[in-house]
Structures are given as structure tokens and as C-alpha cells.
Amino acid sequence: MKKMTPQHRHKLATGALMLAMASSVFSANATGIKEKIQQDCAGCHALHEEKKDDQLTQRINRKGPPLYYAASKYQKEWMQNWLQDPQRIRPGGDYFANHTVVTDEGDVIDDATLLKHPRLSAADAKSATAYLMTLDSKKELLDKQAYSAKKTSRRMAAMNFSKFKGCQACHRDEEDYGGVSGPELYTAHQRLRPEFIASYIRDPQQWEPRSLMPNRHLPDKEIHKLMDYFKILGE
């Protein structure tokens, strides 16, 4: 027996509209990419920093990750490829509670309510990526500490990720295994700039004041161990 949360009801009501919008995104030619992105993407992604008083509500209502610091966060090559063949990064959506249904077997994500990202042509993906890579807010937060991957045992690294650090509670390190409320991390190495990963793990709230990720107060060595694991997963 499913019980819908209020957020879930709201999401269902808007879901069809959003999907309809998604299907029309980038259907025209690729001229004026900046205007096109402002018009088609801003419904789900913040393209400018908005400092609202109630940041918790702002986070809860978010439909997609902010892109005003896309260049500080993402790897260019990954973005261009992903826009042509988008795969779900957050199994529970951008805010899991908006997609959660209470059942007798426990809470589950209702996949039917999750928004699908529009698929772009190669040309549009290239021009969209070029523009998004100019959005470099927060670059001063990027980690200054040099990171170079170290040799590590996959088994030990996996254990560190799941049992010692507890990351797997919210994040998946393989398809269909691990938490669903956070973004999957088996493509983090290809997806995210290493300076961003280190900086975000060190202090998530610097990037997003109402990030749902805890700051585990990890020293550099421990942060780099996690990054070594992401590298293994991505190779």
C-alpha cells in the first residue's frame, strides 16, 4: 500500500508538464546558446547565485543541480558526452523526499516521478558545454592542494568508502547498490574536477549552504583515499 507524501503529490502534478518541456528543449537551431540555456535550463538549474533567506526551502524545491559554477565543478569532456546521452546521476532525484513513497516494505523512490534530462544533439551539446564552461563562480573554493592518485587496494578502498566512512549510506559506488539520496559516485572521477571533489568533501556547505551532505571533518589524506577509490571505479 503506497502512501504519497505532499511533495510527491506536487511532483506528480508537475511531472508531466516538466517532461513535456524537456522534450522540446534544444529542438531549434543552436544559435544564441546563452539565451537558449537561460530559457530552457533555468526551470530546473540555477544559472545565477540566488541568496535567499530561506535556503532550506530553496534546497527542498530544487529540481536539478545549480549550474552557475558548472566550470568549477564538471569535467568538460564528460559534460559534452553526458548531454548527448544523459544517465541518471541521482537515483532519488535532486531531492529524494519529493520522490519518496511510504510502503509497507519501507520507503521507496517512485521512478515515475523522476524527471528525464533532455538529450541534446552533438552540435548542441558542444555549444551548451562551451557556454556552461564559462560559468566559473566559486572557483576560489577549488582545492589548492595538489592531488596525485596513489596505488590502492580496491577491496580496502571499498571498505573505507562503505564501512569506515559510511559514504555508501547515501551514495552508490556501483549500479543498483548503495544509497539513493545522494549522487552516484561510480562516475565521479570522469564527471567532476578533482579540485572540486576534494573541496566539496572538505566543506560541502561552502558550495551549497544547505547541502544535504555532512562535513565529516576529514584530513587531506582521507579525502585523497576516497578520490583514489573514485579513480579505480572510473577506470
Binding site: G92, F96, T100, E105, G106, D107, V108, I109, Q168, A169, C170, Y177, G178, G179, V180, S181
Partner: peptide, 8 residues
């Protein structure tokens, strides 16, 4: 029984 509980 949260959404993350299944694999914990």
C-alpha cells in the same frame, strides 16, 4: 525504513 536503508 528510509529510502537508503535497504542496502545498509
Amino acid at each position: 525504513y528510509g529510502v537508503n536503508a535497504e542496502d545498509m
